[in-house]
Amino acid sequence: MSDAVAAVRDLQIAEDEVYAEFVKRDWCDGLPIVPPTPERVSAMLGGADASRVLGIMPPLWREASVGKLAVNAVMAGCDPAYFPVIVAAVRALLEPAFNLYGVQATTHPVAPLLVVSGPVAGAIGMHAGSGLFGPGFRANATIGRALRLILMNVGGGWPGRHDMATQGSPAKFSFAIAEREDASPWPPLHVRLGFKAEQSVVTLFGGEAPHNVNDHVATTAAGVLNNVADVAATLGSNVGWYMAQSQLLVVLGPEHAATVAADGFSVADVQRFVFEHARIPLGRLKLGGMWGMHDWPLWMQKVTDEAALLPMVPAPEDVYVLVGGEALRRRLEVQNLKRHW
């Protein structure tokens, strides 16, 4: 779909034939789509300039025009109210610091996770409560799906063809959430990243599908966070091998967040605890994973004591923390290979 706007305008077929035709042309993700008629695309644009180019999207380095984004947003089932979030998310994806080429073309099952913070999340119905990573919520599902369609149709990241993820991931269908700001004992993520509380902000993480952390008994911050750190420190994880690019995103449920905060832990305390406890002995690291292919800072390369505990991320600041979900005793962790933006 290198010239999606013109293609939609020129394709003259019955609406009930659109899905099959788009599948044949490799223009969709395999799921049914909303036919992107010119009228629907115009409504999605809402007066925005369709010819405006946000940048060049890898891996095929095609122009990401606002019109192409609108076509894919319609196909995904988005409400026009979601479109500014999609545009902002694509702008973030195209920032060099995000390394979108690496995210799109790697063999690792990484997908951009969109986190929406600030007033816009509630205004458009982004879900931050029970099941926020799952089905049932139009804004989350369709915004995440629109981004995936854009990555495929505009960027050219097709499975087995430029997207070389060995086994893929369900997170590559849709991966978008809101932050549960109303249940967080700490300032929201976007405020901690330097934005004002009244601003609406999108944050992108190149992450794996969520890793569950199961804990029904911990009553202290240390108890909760030891489990988080243990899940993070695994031999087969990508995190820790390419140290300069390794990050962790910890999504605490409201109940566990309250337990941690009740022990006087700030977000900085959580970050430092996970950084200091999510570690693997050098001797165990030599047993497999990516030993011999690792990219470590000089100080880690000089370690010879096989009992020495080595970190999974470069610094405490590379552990990101937010609150999401319902007040039940579980939390999730997204292991991150690429830098966030």
Rank of each mutant, 00 (worst) to 15 (best):
V71R: 02
V71P: 13
V71A: 01
N72Y: 15
N72F: 14
N72I: 03
A73E: 08
A73K: 12
A73V: 10
A73D: 12
A73F: 11
V74Y: 02
V74T: 01
V74R: 00
V74H: 00
M75D: 07
M75A: 11
M75Q: 15
M75E: 13
M75T: 12
A76Y: 12
A76H: 05
A76S: 14
A76V: 02
G77L: 04
G77D: 14
G77F: 09
G77H: 04
G77T: 12
G77M: 02
G77A: 07
C78K: 06
C78N: 13
C78W: 05
C78L: 09
D79Y: 00
D79C: 00
D79K: 04
D79P: 00
P80S: 08
P80R: 06
P80M: 03
P80C: 05
P80G: 09
P80V: 06
P80K: 06
P80W: 05
A81I: 10
A81L: 10
A81Q: 12
A81G: 11
Y82H: 14
Y82T: 08
Y82Q: 12
Y82I: 02
F83E: 06
F83T: 13
F83P: 14
F83C: 08
F83S: 04
F83A: 12
P84I: 09
P84E: 07
P84N: 11
V85D: 01
V85W: 04
V85I: 15
V85G: 00
V85N: 05
V85C: 03
I86M: 10
I86Y: 06
I86P: 08
V87G: 14
V87F: 11
V87N: 07
V87L: 10
V87I: 14
A88E: 14
A88D: 12
A88W: 01
A88I: 01
A88P: 03
A89M: 09
A89R: 00
A89E: 03
A89K: 00
A89H: 06
A89V: 13
V90F: 08
V90N: 08
V90D: 09
R91S: 15
R91A: 14
R91M: 11
R91N: 15
R91T: 13
R91F: 00
A92H: 04
A92I: 01
A92L: 13
L93D: 00
L93Y: 13
L93S: 03
L94A: 10
L94H: 14
L94P: 03
L94V: 07
L94G: 03
L94T: 04
L94S: 14
E95K: 12
E95D: 15
E95C: 07
P96T: 11
P96F: 07
A97I: 10
A97Q: 15
A97D: 15
A97W: 11
A97P: 09
A97C: 08
F98D: 02
F98G: 03
N99W: 06
N99P: 00
N99Y: 03
N99C: 01
L100Q: 00
L100N: 07
L100C: 07
L100V: 05
L100W: 10
L100P: 03
Y101A: 08
Y101N: 06
Y101L: 04
Y101F: 10
Y101C: 00
G102M: 12
G102E: 09
G102K: 09
G102V: 07
G102R: 10
V103D: 00
V103H: 01
V103T: 11
Q104T: 02
Q104W: 02
Q104I: 01
Q104P: 01
Q104G: 06
Q104C: 13
Q104Y: 04
A105H: 10
A105Q: 11
A105G: 06
A105E: 06
